[in-house]
Amino acid sequence: MATGGRRGAAAAPLLVAVAALLLGAAGHLYPGEVCPGMDIRNNLTRLHELENCSVIEGHLQILLMFKTRPEDFRDLSFPKLIMITDYLLLFRVYGLESLKDLFPNLTVIRGSRLFFNYALVIFEMVHLKELGLYNLMNITRGSVRIEKNNELCYLATIDWSRILDSVEDNYIVLNKDDNEECGDICPGTAKGKTNCPATVINGQFVERCWTHSHCQKVCPTICKSHGCTAEGLCCHSECLGNCSQPDDPTKCVACRNFYLDGRCVETCPPPYYHFQDWRCVNFSFCQDLHHKCKNSRRQGCHQYVIHNNKCIPECPSGYTMNSSNLLCTPCLGPCPKVCHLLEGEKTIDSVTSAQELRGCTVINGSLIINIRGGNNLAAELEANLGLIEEISGYLKIRRSYALVSLSFFRKLRLIRGETLEIGNYSFYALDNQNLRQLWDWSKHNLTITQGKLFFHYNPKLCLSEIHKMEEVSGTKGRQERNDIALKTNGDQASCENELLKFSYIRTSFDKI
C-alpha cells in the first residue's frame, strides 16, 4: 500500500482533458527560462521544448504516446526543470519506465491550478516501474492521483506527508504495488545497510526511497516546507523545498512566496507586481503582455491589467481597466465587458449561442446573426445582446428569417469595421425574408467608422429604411451602385405612401 494514499474509496472516473512563447529569463536562482504550460502528445517531438525550461508557468501534460519505446527515452533528460506552477499529468506514455532521468531536479509542483483537485496525476502508464522524482520536495496545493499503472512499484516507500501538507485526498490505487509483488529495495538494503531515512506512518517504520538508488530526502521537522541542505541544516524561511546553503534567500532552489532578481522575498516591493503567484514583474512586463494579447485571437491570451499590486489576466467583477495605466478602477454604474472572439468572429444561430455573449459591452471581433427560429426570440436576444455598444469588426445579418427588427441591439452605437466582410463591408444584410426595420432612427444613433453597407434580398425592408441608415451611420456616399439592390429590397412591402385627393359631386333626387 502506498504510504499516505487512500484505498478502496469510491472515486469519480478520471477524465483526461485534452506555445513556446518565453516569458522571460528567471535569473540567477533558476538555471534556465520560464516556459508556458505545455500539452505534449502523440510523439516526442515537442518534448524537446523543455530543454531550457527551469519553470513551467502553467501545467505540463505528457500523454497518448503509443509508439514510443524505452530506448526512445534513454537520452532524454531535462535537468534544468525545477518547478511547475500548476500540475504534472502523465497518461498512456508507452515505453517510459521512470522519471528519474527525465526530470531529475523537479523540486516543486505548486498546484496553482489543479487537474480535478490533483497536482500530480500518473494514470495508465503501462510501462512505468517507478516514479523516480527523487528531488520532489513540495506539492504546495492539491493532491496526488496514481492509478492503474500495472508495473509501478516504489510507492509504499514514499512518505507523501513530507511532500504535501495533507495526504487525506491522495488516491493511489490499482498499481502493481497493490499486489505486494514489488519487493522494493532501498539503497544499501541488499548489503544489509540502512542508507535512507525511515519514518513512521500508520504504525509502520519504513525506509523512504524513490528507487533502488535514490533515497527520499527527509528534512528535520523544524525546517517545515522550506527544505534543508545535504547536511540537514534548514533553508531560509522564504525558500521552498530545498537550498544549497542554509538561511540564505539567494540560495533557495525555489521560493515559498515570490522570486525577485535572484532572491526569494515575502512580497513584491514597489515598483514590482505579483505575477502568477510566484514571481515579481515590473510595469513594462505587464504592459507588454497586455499589448501582445490586445489584437491576438490565441486562446488563453489575456490583456493583463494591474489590481491590488498584482498583474492579473482581467479586472475583477465591479472594476474596469483604465487604459492609460492598466489599473483596475471601480465602475460607475454597470461595468464594461470586452469579449474577445477566439477566431475573430462568432455566429449567433440560437439563443444558446447568444447567451455566451451575455453582459458583453464591447465585441472584439465580428458578429454573424443567422437565426431561423426560436421561442420568445426578441426578448431572449435583447437579454443577451442588448448591452453590446461596440463591435470592432463587422455585423452580418444573414438568412435570419425569424427577425423582424434589429432593435434587440438596443445599445449598439459603434461598428468600427477594423475587419470587413469580403474585404469591403462593415454591415452586411443578406436574404432576411421578414426583416422590416433596422432601428427606430428617431431614437437610435449608430456610427460606422469604416467599410460599406450591403443589402440584398431583404424583400420587406424598404429602401427608405436603408437610406436612413446611410445618413445616420455616416456611410452615405461610400456605397457603390450594386451594394444596395434596388429590386430585391422592399419588393414585397408597401414602401411608397402617396396622399390621394378626392373630389365629389353631391346629387339628390331633384338636383344634379
Results as ranks from 00 to 15, higher is better:
Cys182Arg: 00
Val93Ser: 00
Gln204Asn: 12
His127Lys: 02
His212Cys: 05
Pro249Asn: 13
Ser213Arg: 10
Lys217Phe: 07
Leu90Asn: 00
Ile222Thr: 15
Tyr30Asn: 00
Asn135Tyr: 00
Thr267Phe: 09
Glu71Trp: 02
Glu314Gly: 10
Cys301Leu: 04
Tyr30Ser: 13
Asp261Glu: 01
Met137Ile: 14
Val253Pro: 01
Ser143Lys: 12
Asn42Cys: 01
Asp86Phe: 00
Asp247Asn: 06
Pro271Tyr: 12
Pro197Leu: 04
Ile312Phe: 02
Gly183Glu: 10
Gln299Leu: 13
Asn170Met: 06
His291Tyr: 13
Gly262Tyr: 01
Pro269Gly: 08
His274Asn: 15
Gly188His: 09
Leu60Cys: 02
Arg74Gln: 11
His127Phe: 15
Glu49Gly: 09
Thr45Trp: 14
Ser98Lys: 04
Asn282Trp: 03
Gly132His: 00
Asn135Trp: 04
Gly58Glu: 01
Leu289His: 14
Asp39Pro: 00
Asp165Met: 14
Phe205Pro: 14
Ile109Gly: 00
Ala156Tyr: 15
Leu106Asp: 00
Val265Arg: 11
Asn179Arg: 15
Val173Cys: 14
Glu130Ile: 08
Cys315Ala: 09
Thr140Lys: 09
Thr68Ile: 00
Asp288Glu: 12
Val34Ala: 07
Leu90Cys: 09
Pro36Gln: 13
Asn43Arg: 13
Cys182Pro: 04
Ala119Leu: 00
Ser317His: 03
Thr320Met: 08
Ala254Ser: 07
Val218Tyr: 07
Thr68Gly: 14
Cys219Leu: 02
Cys315Tyr: 00
Arg74Phe: 10
Trp160Leu: 05
Cys264Pro: 00
Ile122Gln: 01
Pro249Val: 06
Glu180Gly: 13
Phe78Trp: 03
His59Gly: 10
Asn150Cys: 03
Asn309Ile: 03
Tyr304Asp: 02
Val265His: 15
Ile122Leu: 09
Met38Cys: 02
Asn195Cys: 13
Glu130Trp: 07
Leu120Ala: 06
Lys176Ser: 02
Pro79Gln: 08
Asn175Lys: 13
Leu260Thr: 12
Asp277Gln: 14
Thr157Glu: 06
Cys243Arg: 01
Asn202Ser: 08
Arg145Asp: 04
Ile146Phe: 08
Asn195Lys: 13
Ile139Asp: 00
Met137Asn: 09
Tyr94Cys: 06
Asn175Ala: 04
Phe283Thr: 04
Asn202Arg: 09
Leu106Ala: 00
Ser323Val: 12
Val218Pro: 02
Pro104His: 00
Tyr134Asp: 07
Arg263Tyr: 11
Thr199Pro: 05
Ser237Glu: 07
Asp72Asn: 15
Gly203Lys: 15
Cys243Val: 00
Cys234Phe: 00
Cys335Lys: 01
Ile84Ala: 00
Arg74Leu: 02
His59Val: 05
Asp169Tyr: 05
Gly188Asn: 04
Ile201Arg: 07
Arg145Pro: 02
Gln204Ser: 08
Asn322Gln: 07
Asn325Leu: 09
Gly142His: 01
Asn43Asp: 06
Leu63Tyr: 00
Asp159Glu: 10
Arg41Thr: 00
Asn105Lys: 11
Trp160Asp: 00
Val93Lys: 01
Ser98Gln: 02
Leu289Trp: 04
Tyr171Trp: 03
Lys251Leu: 07
Val281Leu: 04
Leu44Pro: 09
Phe205Arg: 09
Glu49Met: 12
Arg141Trp: 01
Asp277Ser: 12
Gln287His: 08
Asn308Ala: 05
Gln299Cys: 08
Pro246Arg: 10
Asn242His: 11
Phe283Asn: 14
Phe275Thr: 00
Val144Arg: 01
Gln204Met: 14
Phe283Pro: 02
Cys280Phe: 01
Asp86Lys: 03
Asn325Ala: 05
Trp210Gln: 02
Ser98Phe: 02
Gly32Asp: 10
Ser317Gly: 12
His28Met: 09
Glu314Leu: 06
Ser112Gly: 08
Gly142Ser: 02
Val218Asn: 02
Leu128Tyr: 00
Pro330Ile: 15
Lys176Thr: 11
Thr68Asn: 03
Ser284Arg: 05
Asn170Leu: 09
Asp101Pro: 06
Gly183Met: 15
Leu260Met: 04
Cys196Glu: 10
Asp261Trp: 03
Leu174Lys: 15
Gln299Asn: 14
Val253Ala: 12
Gly232Met: 04
Phe283Tyr: 13
Gln287Arg: 13
Cys264Tyr: 02
Leu81His: 00
Asp261Ser: 12
Arg256Trp: 13
Cys234Asn: 01
Leu120Asp: 00
Asn295Leu: 11
Arg256Ala: 10
Met321Gln: 14
Ser161Tyr: 12
Leu96Arg: 00
Pro246Gln: 01
Phe116Pro: 00
Leu131Lys: 00
Glu124Lys: 00
Ile185Leu: 12
Gly227Phe: 05
Asp72Thr: 14
Asn138Ser: 09
Trp278Asn: 00
Pro70Cys: 01
Asn135Cys: 05
Phe73Val: 02
Asn202Tyr: 07
Asn179Val: 07
Val200Arg: 10
Leu50Thr: 02
Ile62Glu: 00
Thr157Met: 01
Arg92Ser: 00
Lys294Gly: 10
Pro187Arg: 04
Glu238Pro: 01
Gly232Pro: 11
Gly142Lys: 00
Asn295Glu: 10
Glu238Trp: 06
Ser166Arg: 10
Met137Leu: 10
Leu90Tyr: 04
Arg110Phe: 08
Met38Asp: 00
His48Asn: 15
Leu164Arg: 09
Met83Gln: 07
Thr189Asp: 07
Leu99Ser: 01
Ala119Phe: 01
Val200Asn: 13
Val206Ile: 13
His236Trp: 01
Gly203Phe: 05
Asn295Gln: 03
Asp184Thr: 05
Phe285Tyr: 13
Ala119Thr: 02
Ser77Val: 07
Leu44Arg: 12
Cys268Gly: 00
His307Asn: 13
Met38Ser: 09
Leu327Met: 12
Ala230Ser: 13
Leu44Ala: 12
Lys193Cys: 12
Leu133Glu: 00
Cys186Gln: 01
Pro316Trp: 01
Phe285Ser: 03
Lys176Gly: 06
Leu89Ser: 01
